[in-house]
Design a protein around this nucleic acid. Structure first.
Lengths: 182, 182
DNA sequence: TGCTAACCGGAGACAGTCTCCGTATCGTGG
DNA sequence: CCACGATACGGAGACTGTCTCCGGTTAGCA
């Protein structure tokens, strides 16, 4: 990639991260281009569509997922507390920007999703938590990773759309945790 | 209201109900107008914006909510089963069209929502179920109606966006129910 | 039947998405 | 060091959807 192209690419991703956080996933791409100091043509050549841009934004995010899972797994305490700690990390991770929780959660089961690989990272991290708890015999039968992701993703989606703060989200996560542990 | 105006009003609502179900809440309003055989001006005079139209569509829906609550309350069986029966009705009720669960659930806490009164009907119905279960001492402390609506709304939102069928939704609702009953 | 208030609906302003293509720039090979 | 081909840039504009304005039409009453 030519030096000027790389410069523009990086600049667009950086600006898009800010704009998506400020205005949500529906923000105008022409505005992203304008704020990045490039023409719309440039933006659309690098990123054929909105999802491609999101995918690039999430590139650095992947590392944080594994860190978060690691951190949650070191959590001392009851299975319920471990689960809750992971839930809270999970919600934080997928609440990248307005519309993020919905976007990511609906991509979970979609093999054609442009952010599929990103979601798999998240699923695998949840897998580790589920495996650990299952080994301890702490989970109800029938509880699996995909259910966990959907339930917590659902809570995060509602929180995102209703602009709930952490204090309001916590009791919802507690219900989900209580419903999953034996 | 003049007879011709009423005719158009009714026709638009009827067509919008179909189009929203087919294409989701984001469907083009100009298309609704076209299919109703009126100009866009007529549609927008009757309904200043998309939400006003949704509000009109939901008018007849209100009756079905109370019926559904009634039906759930007659349910014989354990508190968990009653709760589950109501959850399933709830999901069905708010899954009017694509985007419906998200729309309705996010309107729950918004006093300025254009469909506020419709949501209150839903909240009140859930209240009846919660009161009944609380009287029986079957609910955990801290569980309230708004939490119920948000959790089940979250599940319905995910189901809507991921196009899950009833069989896939059921285990999610079971987790929520288990987390709420003692 | 004639009048007037109410209603109709198309033209068009505006915003966002995305493409095309002439122009400008990079960086390499001579 | 320069010239040239490959690559990238970005603005003009086509297209779609939202919503408004207003000239023309019509319902319904006297």
């Amino acid at each position: 990639m030519r030096a000027d192209a790389k410069r523009n690419y990086d600049r667009i991703v950086e600006v898009a991260r800010v704009v998506f956080r400020e205005q949500g996933y529906d923000a105008s791409l022409d505005e992203v281009a304008k704020r990045a100091g490039v023409g719309p043509g440039t933006l659309y050549r690098h990123f054929p569509n909105r999802d491609a841009l999101l995918d690039a934004i999430m590139q650095s995010w992947v590392d944080r997922v594994d860190e978060a899972a690691e951190k949650a797994l070191t959590h001392e305490g009851s299975p319920r507390d471990l689960l809750l700690a992971w839930f809270e990390e999970y919600v934080r991770l997928i609440s990248l920007h307005k519309g993020g929780p919905a976007k990511i959660t609906s991509a979970l089961g979609d093999p054609d999703s442009p952010i599929l690989t990103k979601c798999q990272v998240l699923t695998r991290a949840s897998d580790r938590v589920v495996d650990r708890l299952r080994d301890e015999g702490a989970l109800k039968d029938g509880v699996d990773t995909i259910s966990l992701c959907r339930l917590v993703g659902g809570v995060a989606t509602v929180a995102d759309q209703s602009e709930l703060d952490e204090a309001a989200v916590r009791p919802l996560l507690e219900v989900v945790a209580d419903g999953m542990v034996k």
